[in-house]
Nucleic acid binder design. Structure first.
Lengths: 347, 347
DNA sequence: CAAATTTGCCTTACCGGTTAATTTTAGTAC
DNA sequence: GTACTAAAATTAACCGGTAAGGCAAATTTG
């Protein structure tokens, strides 16, 4: 069942020269005469010769591929990030190998393992919601594997990082809810101890305190699996909404949580924004046509993917060890739609 | 900048035996004594030895990776397909390398080229909307590269294929519109000469003719780029809706076309379903919470990815050449929501 | 015209792992 | 002690491409 390829030896045999002459001719080496070069090039084209990448990798000690670890691809944000990564990688002649953690620490460890076994030249990773221990990554980083973190990052490993400006996005989103007249604002977020959770929560807290609105700590709900399973969001919503003093607005902290919350609110029969307003992080292009149109914090996902990949390839191809690392925060965009209409207008 | 690994030679040196003894011990060969095997295994574990996949690939002549060609990953349908592919590939120790055509024939050719240069063991492909000429794939197929088509397939190459039951999905969807009281049904679809376009159009036509509803040929609109660019859908909609005898329902043929049509109808100020009903192929999990909730034909995307990958790995690992090929059609599901409510109820 | 240099190509070793062919070692039989 | 055999390990070749080093022929130089 294999699909035999033309090798450098076939060309050598055809022209009656040695394999190394062919190799050198193909690299336009000064050691080879113009006549021979021309003959080799012609023959290579005629036989449709392609160098075997595995032989090259083995010899050179690199693989020209990048590993990507994300939670799941079926999510607008990550799909757009990968889109950006692929565009850069492809243009620089790398390919990408993607794996999903589904927010599980164990899967993250085994995926990272799997990827490094497969010989990647560098790693692009957004940590799973469950991940607390970073040993699996520290070991690789210490051994010299270039790593760039994006989205969910960590301070424990010194390398390049690309995030959205989560703090500012959350701060502005919360302010917009406050300006629209909402006061009892609840926040549904992912697992604590994840970078994006902290940043977004801090932005939320600052906006609240700057406006002198006391924050009911019961109004901050964590979803340990990042909203991967519906039940945890359902539980958070039930706790928030089936109480006498329920919030008048929800600020949700991730793509999955936001869209699932919208679905559940529908199912539970809440009118948005009359019964409760909703504003959340999401990258769905359908925000405009949701019922109601959904106010959202949009992250420049494609750019994040591009930037992270450019940084990683920079690390990989750097001649000298890199000592200075960047942490880039890309601007988010808060877009107000009907799901957080001003209170005065509709009440 | 490289990240040196433990090799079989390190183990050999450590134990004072030859490299080949180590290799054989690791494969539990009968030629090696139990004592040596135990020592090798212990040492391999201690040094955290991992065989170099490129060396193995070079020797064995395979790469344990599968190429995937899709139009774009930022699309619920394809994201779910890839999800399914990844799950199977990963469990069978393959990795997947994904590329996007963005519906361009040229990109399809260059991506396929790029993938085969990278030495894949097999190819999973959904043809681009632009693709008419299949020479680039025929050549590879003739050379023995295992290929499985999914979603957008072709009759010109004999191999396994996995599709959704597009004909039946379209037939049932159209029938449901007819049963709901709509008569002037328009169909917005992708490029002609693409398998899914034909199948869906035929299902549409059959339902119409079985119900003795004459089909206005002006009511079938093709989008040559599969809805990748907004303008072509906008043009189709304008032509359909800005005419005295305009349709009372739209049946849209793909994920992108359906969601974009919904957005545009909103923007143009049409009330759905009062002014015009909408039902289309889409895999978005947000169908329920769109405005209005969107009637849809759902495709088992995850299963499609799984099935296609199982078939491909079957081809790759088959000892004897495969002569009998399957074309599997997975059932679609038509889900009626508010965007195609019965006419009597709301008019 | 011989010596020195350049040109152009070949031989060889290597990357890391696999495996056929072969040699060494240990054990048994006579 | 010799002959024979089975067991255990080694050597060598290979996968395809790369690159250092070597060598013969052609060209330049004194």
């Amino acid at each position: 069942m294999n699909f035999e390829a033309v090798t450098i030896k076939d060309i050598a045999r055809e022209l009656g020269i040695s394999a190394s002459a062919v190799s050198k001719a193909l690299k336009d080496s000064y050691e080879i005469s113009e006549k021979t070069k021309k003959a080799v090039l012609e023959c290579a084209k005629r036989l449709n010769y392609r160098p075997n990448p595995m032989a090259q990798s083995l010899k050179r000690g690199n693989s020209k591929s990048l590993g990507i670890v994300i939670s799941t691809i079926d999510n607008n944000f990550f799909a757009q990030v990968i889109n950006g990564m692929e565009s850069v990688a492809y243009s620089k002649n790398y390919n990408v190998i993607m794996t999903q953690t589904h927010e599980s620490y164990d899967l993250e460890v085994s995926n990272v393992q799997h990827l490094t076994i497969r010989a990647i030249d560098g790693l692009l990773i957004s940590l799973s919601n469950e991940t607390r221990d970073l040993d699996h990554l520290k070991k690789l980083h210490d051994k010299g594997l270039p790593i760039v973190f994006f989205d969910r990052v960590t301070d424990e490993i010194e390398t390049h990082k690309v995030i959205a400006d989560n703090f500012k996005g959350a701060y502005e989103a919360t302010n917009s809810l406050i300006n629209a007249g909402y006061r009892k604002i609840a926040h549904i977020t992912s697992s604590p101890h994840v970078s994006i959770t902290d940043d977004r929560l801090n932005g939320f807290r600052l906006a609240m305190s700057e406006n002198n609105i006391p924050l009911n700590e019961q109004f901050v709900k964590y979803c340990l699996h990042g909203g991967r399973d519906l039940n945890e969001i359902e539980k958070a919503l039930t706790e928030l909404l089936c109480s006498p003093d329920r919030p008048d607005a929800l600020f949700t902290a991730s793509d999955r949580i936001t869209t699932t919350t919208l679905s559940l609110l529908h199912k539970m029969g809440f009118k948005i924004p009359d019964d409760i307003a909703l504003l959340g992080f999401t990258n769905t292009s359908l925000a405009d046509v949701l019922n109601p149109s959904l106010s959202s914090v949009y992250q420049p996902a494609f750019e994040m993917g591009k930037k992270a990949t450019e940084m990683l390839i920079g690390l990989i191809e750097s001649k000298r060890p890199v000592r200075e690392f960047e942490k880039v925060a890309l601007p988010t965009e808060v877009i107000i739609r009907d799901s957080s209409k001003p209170v005065l207008v509709h009440k």
